[in-house]
Amino acid sequence: MGQPLLQVRSLDVRYGAVQAVDGINFDVEQGEIVALLGANGAGKSSTLNALVGLVPTFSGEVIFEDNNITNIRPEMLPGLGMTLSPEGRRVFGTLSVAENLQMGAFGLRDPNEIAAAWDRVFDLFPILAERRNQFAGTLSGGQQQMLAVGRALMSNPKMLLLDEPSLGLAPKIIEQIFELIKTLNDQGVTILVVEQNVSMALDIAHRAYVLANGTVATSGAAEELAESSNLQNAYLGGA
């Protein structure tokens, strides 16, 4: 398998005196779906935000392919092949669906590559093609989540980070979104997903890391973690 696509070494994130992430280590191999699980405040989102440079890394290292991306400026990431679909979707509500997607492809220069990205995203999400001229803010929650993922796919990333893709969505829509994550993975996109919906996440993930109080409490193959009955009680704030 060679070296992992993403390597996180002793990552430490602090907000003033508050230690949000306390020296965690994890890897994501090429082609995997890896889930980061944990209760509220366990450090999941802080970890993702540190990976993409939205919050400063206090110490430790993040290696993506052969690049040390510790404390990278976020705008450099799409060019390296990594994008984040942020928590709460955060689509540009005052921009049209098409403009949102256009922004996702901001760094692409090659017209053929851009055209291929449009085709791919409209293929995955026909609804976005239908609503391309609508303001993103007028879409339903599920459609906004699709737009957020579609937007993150426009730069043809090798690796996609998903922060709570199921947040605030109806169960049926959540299933659709997770189905889609699997499809993307089958297309060769490596995925790191942060989730509170543990059972759904373990359902699609190959491996998972469970965070508690900013450290890795346990990790392993998704199937094994799914079977361990005390996972909920021990780390995820009860059932």
């Binding site: 939205l54 705008e75 799409p78 994008t83 942020p86 955060r90 921009l95 760094g107």
Partner: peptide, 23 residues
């Protein structure tokens, strides 16, 4: 493209940067 990027940045600067739009 740059005009749309400015509107995007005005709405959500952090996410605009994640798209590769330079701050």
């Amino acid at each position: 493209k740059y005009g749309i990027a400015m509107r995007a940045a005005a709405e959500d600067f952090a996410v605009a940067r994640l798209m590769g739009i330079r701050a």
